[in-house]
Simulated scan of single mutants.
Amino acid sequence: MCELCCGSHVVPVRIGAIIEFYDCPNCGPMPEEKFQKMMDELEKKIKEAEKKFYAEVR
C-alpha cells in the first residue's frame, strides 16, 4: 500500500481555504474495475437506506 495515498489513489492538496484532489503520483488513478465496484457498493447502500427510511415513514 502506498504511504502517500493509503490505497485511495487520491492525494489532497490544500491551497489556502481550498482543497484540491489529484491522482496519486505513485499509484496513478484508481483502476476502473475497483472504482466500479466501489460505486456499485455505494449504490447498494443508498438503496438499502432508502428502503429503511421509507419503511419507517409509512
Rank of each mutant, 00 (worst) to 15 (best):
M1Q: 07
M1I: 03
M1A: 12
E3L: 02
L4A: 11
C5E: 01
C5M: 03
C6F: 12
C6D: 14
G7K: 01
S8K: 02
H9N: 10
P12R: 11
P12G: 08
R14T: 15
I15M: 06
G16D: 09
G16C: 05
A17E: 11
I18R: 12
I18P: 01
I18W: 04
E20Y: 11
F21Q: 09
D23K: 12
D23H: 13
C24Y: 08
C24W: 06
P25A: 09
N26H: 10
N26W: 04
C27K: 08
G28V: 09
M30H: 01
M30I: 15
P31L: 03
P31N: 10
P31Y: 04
P31R: 06
E32R: 15
E33H: 09
E33W: 05
E33A: 14
F35L: 15
F35S: 11
Q36Y: 05
Q36R: 15
Q36L: 13
K37M: 10
M38Y: 10
M38E: 12
M38K: 13
D40N: 15
D40R: 15
D40H: 06
E43M: 07
K44Y: 04
K45V: 00
I46C: 11
I46V: 15
K47D: 13
E48W: 01
A49G: 05
A49S: 12
E50T: 04
K51P: 00
K51L: 09
K51W: 05
K51Q: 14
K52E: 12
K52C: 01
K52R: 12
A55N: 08
V57T: 10
V57M: 12
V57Y: 06
R58I: 07
R58W: 07
